[in-house]
Amino acid sequence: MKLSTSLRFAISAWLLLLVILVMPAGHPALAQDNKAWTEIRSELYGDDRTIHDGSGLLEIEAPDRAQDAALVPISIKSMIGPDDERYIKSLTIVIDENPAPVAGTFHFSRANGIADIATRVRVNAYSTIRAIAEMDDGQLYMAETFVKASGGCAAPATKNNAQAMARLGDMRMRQIGEWEVDQPAEVQLMISHPNFSGLQTDQVTQLWIPSHYVNDLAVSIDGQEILTFEGDISISENPSFNFFVMPQGEGELTARATDTKGNVFEHSWPLRMGSAS
């Protein structure tokens, strides 16, 4: 069959269009992503440390699309085999495209049992989110995922700043699931705080608004330090952290949080064995 030139042109134009439409969406952010990460990586770890593929060791979960830029739930699960003698010494969360990309670093101890973490972060733009684990032998492993930013009026900002301030430093602790002696058990720790990013200038005064966020957290059980965290403005308003402990029986869990204005908030709760929460 012979096709007229114009028809052939029309068909090839359609094919071209089809190719464009079905091509994997190579997002421009990806190129920047790598650039941003190169700089962040260099600052965090220098240029000479190897970062291994952490896909067998870590799993990072976040929604494909942030529903609310101010509150993106993420969780990091460690999958260290029972024969692995090592433990995860620290875990750093990086959101490449955020103004302050390093969301925070958790420092674990063997007393955590499992080095899993769940928290909520602000995501300013289409961004890779990374979890980098440092083992007790100094090796680094990284897992990553990609989160699309939310559209519309969602903003990585506070929702009810006044309320967070009114109960500033109030803390809650929840024991999740069944608690047994010497078995990994999950804790949720919540701190009422606006975790205000302060990145903007006040449009009226043209002065920078100082940031105000929780930058330091230490958790201990009966005086023994279990977990510490250094955080930044990417952690959502009213920070919430889920982590594990290895309870040695009834005891007392203490959390001590410090914010960038030097406020110190400390609370203790009794730990109960058995079915909690």
Partner: peptide, 21 residues
């Protein structure tokens, strides 16, 4: 009375959003 604070916190992000869209 809370609009100035909210605009200060979100304004730049929304201007960026307008570009993104």
């Amino acid at each position: 009375h809370r609009l100035p604070g909210a605009l200060s916190e979100r304004g730049d992000f929304y201007l960026e959003q307008i570009k993104t869209l």
